[in-house]
Design a protein around this nucleic acid. Sequence first.
DNA 1: CTAAAAAATTTCAAGCTTGAAACTTCATGC
DNA 2: GCATGAAGTTTCAAGCTTGAAATTTTTTAG
Lengths: 164, 164
Amino acid sequence: MSVQLPDELSASSPVRPRVRVWLKLLKVTKNVEQVVRENLRAEFDTTLPRFDVLAALDRFDDGLKMSELSAALRVSNGNVTGIIERLVIDGLVLRVPVAGDKRATLVRLTQKGQEEFAKMAAAHARWVNAVLEDLPPAACEQVIGILDTIGRAPKQTAKVDDND
Amino acid sequence: MSVQLPDELSASSPVRPRVRVWLKLLKVTKNVEQVVRENLRAEFDTTLPRFDVLAALDRFDDGLKMSELSAALRVSNGNVTGIIERLVIDGLVLRVPVAGDKRATLVRLTQKGQEEFAKMAAAHARWVNAVLEDLPPAACEQVIGILDTIGRAPKQTAKVDDND
DNA sequence: CTAAAAAATTTCAAGCTTGAAACTTCATGC
DNA sequence: GCATGAAGTTTCAAGCTTGAAATTTTTTAG
């Protein structure tokens, strides 16, 4: 993160606007992320990756397979294994065998996990609102609208495509 | 990253727009970052953190102190130590003692480091342009303008303030 | 001068992250 | 059946990241 291009490049002509918006996105994202990260640690003694996992699981009452989870979070398979391991130890997550497939496991929030996440999610919303308080709702919608056009064009999309 | 809020929250009223724009920023940023990361690995056999360090150093011919570097990158002090260590081993970066202060060290790009970074920076600009090709320059400027308002208000700025 | 505080860095343990390799289980074709 | 490959995961090494503690040097107060 925090990529800073050399002046000779950041001043060059056709390339500039996208690189500049990218650097801006990076900076804002990093700022918000930092705030969320610190608050998660200070108030809940947890980490952003753990929060992300809980958030993903919270959306699926029936649980997710490990591979579905890593796909949802866009991280590697092996990554999720370790995080889930620790969440299981802490009693926030449960592993359930999948009927009829001994390879896969389903991962689900426990009651405790749901309750913990509910608190975190509420706090998370407050933190984000505080950091972005200077952005009026209309401005937010505008940014969302503009960024939504990425990957929407009929052309070949370099590697970026997704719903929502 | 990739925070997904529960429906009950992401649908709630006063909180929504900022959280939504935050999730959007996160998604776009993560996409671009992923592309840059993979390309750096595939084409230059290096990592994003290393690229970031080189980029920061490239802007200062006279070098940076370790603390200045970590401040510029917004990462912890200890973090930079390891990355610089490896960059020194690879001959891309040089450590120079600071005259009159035996505590500090100055870190600077070597000739090789400058040349390597120049190639990477050019490629980086191409990758970013490809990923964001659907964003017209005007849209980029618009997003930059809107996001620039963050931390600009006379109010107390929760933790976000910076130039550029 | 000297004790104590401050500054600049490194070290450290714990956790996150990746891509590749290994492993187990399942599905398919013959 | 049964070999072969695909699918789902875990393991692993290497590197990134953090916050805290430790180290060394400099500055400041008295």
